[in-house]
Design a protein around this nucleic acid. Sequence first.
DNA 1: AGCGTCAGGGCAATCGTTTTCCTTCTGTTT
DNA 2: AAACAGAAGGAAAACGATTGCCCTGACGCT
Lengths: 346, 346
Amino acid sequence: MSGNGEETLGTIDRAATISEVAALAGVSPGTASKALNGRGALRPETRRRVQEAAEQLGFVANAAARSLQAGRTYTVGMITTDSIGRFSIPLLIGAEDALGAGQVSVFLCDARDDPIREQYYLRTLLGRQVDGIIVTGRRTQARPPIGRSLPVPVVYAFISSTDPADCSVVPDEADGARRAIEHLLAIGRRRIAHVTGPEHHHSATVRASAAMQAISSAGLEPAAPVLFGEWSEAWGRQAAGILLSTEAEVDAVFCGSDQIARGLAEALQESGRPVPNDIALVGFDNWDVMVDGCRPALTSIDMDLEGIGRTAAELLLAAINGDPAHGRRALPGRLIPRASTAVHPA
Amino acid sequence: MSGNGEETLGTIDRAATISEVAALAGVSPGTASKALNGRGALRPETRRRVQEAAEQLGFVANAAARSLQAGRTYTVGMITTDSIGRFSIPLLIGAEDALGAGQVSVFLCDARDDPIREQYYLRTLLGRQVDGIIVTGRRTQARPPIGRSLPVPVVYAFISSTDPADCSVVPDEADGARRAIEHLLAIGRRRIAHVTGPEHHHSATVRASAAMQAISSAGLEPAAPVLFGEWSEAWGRQAAGILLSTEAEVDAVFCGSDQIARGLAEALQESGRPVPNDIALVGFDNWDVMVDGCRPALTSIDMDLEGIGRTAAELLLAAINGDPAHGRRALPGRLIPRASTAVHPA
DNA sequence: AGCGTCAGGGCAATCGTTTTCCTTCTGTTT
DNA sequence: AAACAGAAGGAAAACGATTGCCCTGACGCT
């Protein structure tokens, strides 16, 4: 719009090659390469001339040519084994964060929980000579390795591999559950119940047993046996009914997910049991739309998914650079206190 | 596990080259290439021999080498201008769907609403010689083109470009709003109100004016002036109070988002105005967690984001193949009826 | 003056695939 | 039997960037 033809990146019609840059600067392609990459012994003036020529032509090195000769693509693949969803996004963002800083790009593949697609994508990624692969997916339990003795390093994020030699980064769910219980104890609650997802779901059982243990460690009994169900608001509402129909005298509920907690909160309030005064509530996931939409706003455990993505990416970079890590790393979560466990509710 | 060393993709330690395949098959690299790509005139037996050799070595063609010579990378970039979120995911899935079938991979870049990052990613993508770029982002209003006369085609998805020569694929929000109103009219409602997001938000005003127009076309008046606020449950609850405090006699509310509708639903029920008997409710977005979590389940407008992503990808592929499209394409949405507008509620 | 040294920069190989010519050989036709 | 057509496959260039090696001057030293 300003009238000249040199706005940022505006006038590139086709990619310029380094030979064209070299010609414009009056040097050979090899010299131009050295000038732009800061190698070789060149007069400062030559270097500058080449840089100016590159600027003028909007030169960006052809990544294919570069990786062909370098044997590295500065690219990693990310395979989400189940569909890209609420959990994958923060992981992706975290990973992108760690990788983007190092000029590494991410190929995202959605395997949709289909092993065929997964193998297909794996081949594709290997064909594209990615430098490494991050495997992620909703966590039910450890998954079999995506392949054996692959030519590139692999890091599992959020989900973990059954092979202990593989590198996995996962949330410390037991730790999260403990934090929830400890928080409830700290605000003076003593009759704590736990409502969570399906019993066959790994996360549900891990969180449940850690919660029960934390209660025992405090010298208490759970106010009710663990209620396993689904990861839904509907189940939360249903569970509220169950808890209230018993003589359990519950004064706090730790829920296996924010959705469950939200359903519970609604049902409790409707039954005239105010939250948090009568019953305090802690959720799990710290899912913004749930914790904010819930009334009162929901105290929850944040698994730091971005941190997991970032850590996985960092470990992958280290592995690419020849320093592979092994085993499972469990990252601690945080408890985010909100009104549902407020001591002096507004 | 089966004892031999040939499980799927299990034993690749380093990528085999086509020369190795050729050597194993006893032919030249050129011939091997022809055999694997189905060109040239080769004896069927030779072709088979090469294919077997490739299989045996787990050969996957080096994409860098291939694109270097082909001048195409079979890769497209996807830049989300605001953070990857609820809207970007279905778009991404739709795009991946259309592209994956054609063996094209997607580079995902999250520009986080930062123009600097955006330009940086653009450069990166161009350096990687992507064949095309899809630009997406939360929709407020048309955005300036990401660059001018770029060396590769660009398609805007969900968001649109201010340059009419650019190709944009967007939801037809006015159409969606009309469908909502027509549905409410069809179930016999006559006093319809509209509650939506901020007035400065393009989507809010487009939906609002289309809704008002649809009401007028039916020879009716809106039951209340449009209530502009935020895209939140809290605003929905607040708006319910406003509507009930007037003498408006509302019998249906069309909401600009599912979140608003859910807040409204809660507040209405608490005030003893059952949904849908007293007041019917239609949301917008068809966001699973909202429409299912809402009680009663929420009728909503689905913008078919996956379809938008898929269409954008198809148009991009066409443009890459030399057949560029121009202008704005608005895709119709669908109304998904649920209990909140049921004629005979359960 | 002659030799050595080093800065500066050009040359050419290299990465792995594809593709365009060629060459060779077989079989057919006149 | 000679000539030709076609099939089958090999040789080599090309894609674009990088890099090790070599060449050419200029300068300094004896």
